[in-house]
Design a protein around this nucleic acid. Structure first.
Lengths: 333, 333
DNA sequence: GCCTCGGCCTGGAACGTTCCAGGAAAAGGG
DNA sequence: CCCTTTTCCTGGAACGTTCCAGGCCGAGGC
């Protein structure tokens, strides 16, 4: 009842009364067919519901034109990045192949899947793998790490200037009059070290060394919530948080404890993920420029694949402060 | 500096001094080669770092053994489902190919991508497409709709008993002593109609017709927040919400307004997505059995592909109440 | 001793594309 | 009017597999 075999190039060709080579041309939108024939071919293809078989196509051309993307299913910011990657790949002639990291499916498994699909390059979102294993992978094919610094010459890195981002956050708070500014960090998460460093040096630069305080956090809401509970034992007037997700946990615990945001406590997140933009969250945050990051990642991957000469292995994109409703002047003492 | 062409069957064959057909046999672990030769071939393959080319393999065998999955990148519950699908596919010999729906990439585009990859079946998570277009798709290949009812005989449906789920929620609240129970609905979202119906009939069944009240919501946090603002003008003692994401928005607005959860207001979500389980959210919710739903979806898709005889087009999985911290007895008047 | 039968192996034809070399006809150039 | 160029088109050889039809050889049955 189903499937009387999918239509092939040959089917379309006989129907349109031309050779399959010509149909191939037309389908790929290459010159070499008259407008008239082109229309006939397209009509025939339409009628047969013809869909090119990418396997055969790629087998023959020896190329897959596939960019493998490894992402964390549970991270809203990754969702934003993947959205950007799809958009960035749109007009390039390359396609995105997704492979998710889940609680039951590790990064190496995700990568293996993409290798069997013969991806030509890999874009890894905030990879957790060791530098060594990333480096090993990079000897086999172009690898772009997105949103995580990697100290290895083989892998390309596209990331935000995380230290600078945290400086923006701290300076915004200082501008509002804060001095007691605590940082809730991301532990061993990608980028966490840089953000910690940015916080520290900004505090020092402004002579607030004595108020420097770092509370261990993490990259999830529950880690943020836990950190907030610690924090509230001895609250500062402002807090910068490793990322938006973690900040959400903070906000939640803070709101329940009766401390008012932003009047008693200012909170700054990081990422400007879709979470932060939600009207009821309205989180002041440091925006990573997703459009730019993803565009750079895709073009870098493609350049590597095509062997274009490339100057720097690492591109650092400046982040941007987005002021929303969770920051204000500190309470009058 | 990279990739001096990957090894092929023929390379292995000449190295081992046998025909490529034989190598093919050995690689697929089929009978027809002596132990001795088998070892020689495997050695040669090992030395050359041979990896079979799945494109060629699938092209020739006419099968892709690929299950296409279309999911919404922004939905945490979809993330949970995808996680389950990966797990369910693990031992089946089929692989999962992901295609995301994003703000800039519609469902039909996501499907087209999978069609070109020659997926053998499609699993669509809460598809938004019209019944008609799903039906059309289903004439070309097996289609399984997950978590959305579809009134068409061509497409398989695996879903939770949503009406029943809402009855569970309402009855739990009634058991606690509530009578003023409002429902915040999901508008036109998949499953919303069933949940609305379940709420209504449960209220009627318990003689609470006069307290029946439905506030328009949606499937995102911000829609939940908006609904909560409406709700608070004239608050009930309990509210059942279309899904966890929406409930999160409700919780947030409620917490900020000084109304205590659960003592002033009980809240029940839907999905038991990872959001609900977060310690600081601790949301009472109706769990969809992700493990069962995803296992059924995968096996159903495979059965269709393999032409096994199948009785019912639709499988309805009972949901389950998960009591956490957002429900309690109503305040003493 | 001949026939059959298994076990092991080979060669070549697919699969649905793209790519390349070329050919026929129309268009331009002297 | 002939020669070149361009435009449009065709046929067939790849790509790396799997699948099918067989071939060869030794063992067993009559």
């Amino acid at each position: 009842m189903r499937d009387e075999r999918r239509a092939t190039l040959t089917d379309v060709a006989t129907r349109a009364g031309v050779s399959k080579s010509l149909v191939s041309l037309v389908m790929r939108d290459e010159p070499g067919a008259s407008a008239e024939t082109r229309r006939r071919v397209l009509d025939a293809a339409e009628q047969l519901g013809y869909q090119p078989d990418s396997r055969a196509r790629l087998l023959r051309s020896g190329r897959s034109r596939l960019l493998g993307v490894v992402f964390g299913l549970q991270h809203p910011f990754h969702a934003d990045l993947v959205t950007g990657l799809y958009a960035a790949a749109r007009e390039t002639g390359y396609e995105i192949a997704l492979s998710a990291v889940t609680p039951g499916r590790g990064e190496s498994e995700a990568v293996t899947g993409l290798l069997q699909d013969r991806c030509e390059a890999l874009i890894l979102l905030g990879p957790q793998s060791s530098t060594a294993s990333l480096a090993r992978l990079a000897t086999r094919m172009p690898v772009v790490a997105l949103a995580r610094p990697v100290r290895d010459n083989g892998v390309d890195v596209i990331r935000s200037a995380d230290a600078e981002g945290l400086a923006l956050a701290v300076e915004h708070l200082i501008g509002l009059g804060h001095r007691e500014i605590t940082h809730i960090d991301g532990g061993r998460a990608p980028g966490a070290a840089d953000r910690r460093r940015g916080y520290r040096s900004a505090m020092r630069r402004h002579g607030l060394t004595e108020h420097e305080r770092i509370v261990p956090g993490g990259l999830t809401e529950s880690e943020g919530a836990a950190a907030a509970r610690t924090l509230l034992e001895n609250p500062p007037t402002a807090v910068t948080v490793f990322n938006d997700r973690c900040a959400l946990g903070v906000l939640d615990v803070v709101a329940r404890s009766g401390v008012g945001v932003p009047h008693d406590l200012s909170v700054v997140g990081y990422d400007d993920s879709s979470l932060a933009r939600l009207a009821h969250v309205d989180l002041t945050t440091i925006a990573q420029d997703v459009a730019v990051l993803t565009r750079l990642a895709v073009t870098r991957a493609i350049h590597r694949v095509e062997g274009a000469p490339i100057d720097r292995r690492e591109i650092v994109v400046p982040p941007r402060l987005v002021v929303r409703g969770t920051t204000a002047a500190p309470p009058r003492p």
